[in-house]
Design a binder for these strands. Structure first.
Lengths: 203, 203
DNA sequence: ATCTCCATGTAACTCGTTACATGATTTT
DNA sequence: AAAATCATGTAACGAGTTACATGGAGAT
């Protein structure tokens, strides 16, 4: 029998718990450049928010935990409000942990799709309710797609699509391309559903 | 100044909180046919689990809450284990609440995508690590797509694609089509990333 | 005057996951 | 003999949301 060590993050202090997904999201942003909690909150709306959401009330405690674990370090400056402003930078240990996490096998899942849940129950309501549902979703995904396409165009103008895998901007571009694919897929599905509804209406 | 009542679910007992998304997921399943907590747990792995995940430990307390709110009702039968088996059925109030929820505007969001988070940080690692990441994801989405396509074929054989919007099986079919679109989109993106990596390797 | 941005935190709560606990029947 | 399926719950904790709290600088 061999003693196996489960790969699940650092235990620097001897008892700290493994880094959460949010922790890795913060680390990934800080790894690019030093940031304040406020700036992180902004990134976690856009663009990181497109694949990992949170609120500032979760960010500040998580930053403290990451610092206690030695994965980031902070410096204080005079702040605009009553409290000092704190800027966080990644440590060598933080970068190492982030790299190790990327290489670790991922759990596929974490699905939470309210629209599909509603569609699953849509047989209970008038087709017109389902139609409104699909139209509403269509509007949302259409607007989102336009935003992403504009960013894609600007990225290409800047030559980001040829920047290479070791360039952070290229990593952004990879996620942006998936965003575009996602919105297009949803849009097509909405159109198909609306089409099905029209076909069911007049025979 | 007018007194506005916010639409956020029933307050039958006078102090019950609004129904959670999980509550609606359970209601949507029970609305089709009476089910036990165990059967709900199975559905919340497959097929509901593809857009709303949970564990049985969350299901049992939520069922009690829904029953206390009068949205479902239960009957006891002798169970296989030490405790009696409990089968839940939707009440008229439950169906009404589910219908009202479908018509209420949805928040688009609830994104949690670990793969994209890793890709966002992928500039930190060797391209070979990113390649392994994409290949692993590709395998997963490929298997998932095959499963969905098999179900699609069997649904079409049974004529489900022509069943109409008031048929529960057709609602399943609508979500299945989205599942297929999703997996195809992810697969295409994985292939594109792997392609980009190959192009970056040899010039 | 009011709004938005910058900036940081806490309190109270709900949601979600992992582990514990039990036990008969059926399948491998 | 061991594993899976059916079946239901609780305990402990971690993750996530909403609301509260403060306050300067700059824009409308």
């Amino acid at each position: 029998m061999t003693t196996e060590t489960v790969a699940r993050g650092p235990r620097i202090g001897g008892q700290s718990r493994p880094v959460s997904s949010l922790g890795y999201a913060l680390l990934a942003a800080i790894a690019r450049e030093p940031l304040t909690g406020y700036a992180l909150a902004r990134l976690l709306r856009d663009p990181i928010g497109y694949f990992w959401e949170t609120r500032h009330s979760q960010i500040y405690p998580e930053l403290s935990r990451l610092e206690r674990a030695g994965l980031i370090e902070s410096s204080e400056q005079p702040g605009p409000g009553p409290r000092p402003k704190r800027t966080y930078a990644a440590t060598a240990a933080g970068l190492a942990e982030l790299r190790a996490w990327i290489a670790r096998p991922s759990r596929f899942g974490g699905r939470r799709d309210e629209l599909m849940l509603k569609v699953y129950a849509s047989w209970l309501v008038e087709p017109s309710v389902t139609r409104d549902l699909a139209r509403d979703a269509r509007r949302h995904h259409s607007a989102q797609l336009e935003l992403y396409l504009a960013r894609d165009a600007s990225a290409r103008e800047r030559g980001v699509d040829r920047a290479g895998f070791r360039n952070p901007s290229f990593a952004d571009y990879l996620t942006l391309r998936r965003g575009i694919g996602y919105e297009r897929g949803r849009l097509a599905w909405c159109d198909w559903v609306i089409d099905q509804l029209a076909a069911a209406d007049d025979p």
